[in-house]
Design a protein around this nucleic acid. Sequence first.
DNA 1: GTTACATGTAATATAATATGTTACAGGTTG
DNA 2: CAACCTGTAACATATTATATTACATGTAAC
Lengths: 146, 146
Amino acid sequence: MSISSRFAVAIHILSLLGMNKDQVNTSEWIAGSVNTNPVVIRKITGYLKNAGLVHVRPGVAGASLARDLSEISLLDVYKAVQVVPENELFGIHDQPNPACTVGRNIQQAIEPLFATAQLALEKALGNVTIADVVSNILERERLRSN
Amino acid sequence: MSISSRFAVAIHILSLLGMNKDQVNTSEWIAGSVNTNPVVIRKITGYLKNAGLVHVRPGVAGASLARDLSEISLLDVYKAVQVVPENELFGIHDQPNPACTVGRNIQQAIEPLFATAQLALEKALGNVTIADVVSNILERERLRSN
DNA sequence: GTTACATGTAATATAATATGTTACAGGTTG
DNA sequence: CAACCTGTAACATATTATATTACATGTAAC
């Protein structure tokens, strides 16, 4: 099973906001680019707002960036949209048998190992910003027109 | 959402097999330690068998290691039990709008970034073996008895 | 202040998935 | 043959992701 595409959609949204700073980006308009329902966009935008990444206000059309794209890492977005429960990228089976040596120690033995792997993932996400994503998009667009 | 605990259970199983090499480890016995149904164990053991990590035969009681524990990394197990579709740790929304600059480039722009993060995760998992896990378990067990 | 329109959010529908369980077919050993 | 195990299909249940409808609330323009 994969990590929710909500993460990818959030990146899509932020890229749009960065490229259309002078436009009014309504949830319906964004939904048209992402190809989903406006409510889905509003929900995700809500996560981004709570994380302080975008500005949105009830009744006022459009979302806008709260920070420069170069100051929003993929990790910021990843955490904002909560696609993975905090420190629980890897699920652990609960209630192993305490009467067994392995059973009564496995959870604590595994936990730090999983945490290390998770941190490696997060560090990689922290090394990239949405500005990088937009640069990449623009580069690809340039190549298309040739 | 977290990665299936099937991964953690598989580590549990292999740890058991390593610590009880002289015993006959039936699916029912293992299930008792993991605290689940024997069929679940047999299913996971099947994955491990397909990956060449354990020996099991229809009709013959017990599973056993096909390799030394020090030669089974968490990454081997992770891949064996297929808790994540190949190269798709991160889900991507499909069919973004091709009429939009972002829509028609976002997938290809994001893909390599996600791949890099995924590789970082896998590399971390590759650095640890089941032997390390068992050592950790034994160390914790020693501390308990003091 | 009322009209038009946008966001926020609850409620619901549907599909996919994880986990557990029953049932049983087929293999192996004594 | 008898006892027992693994492999696996079939099914139940719970959880989750995504989409959708409906509507309450906020804002701005006229």
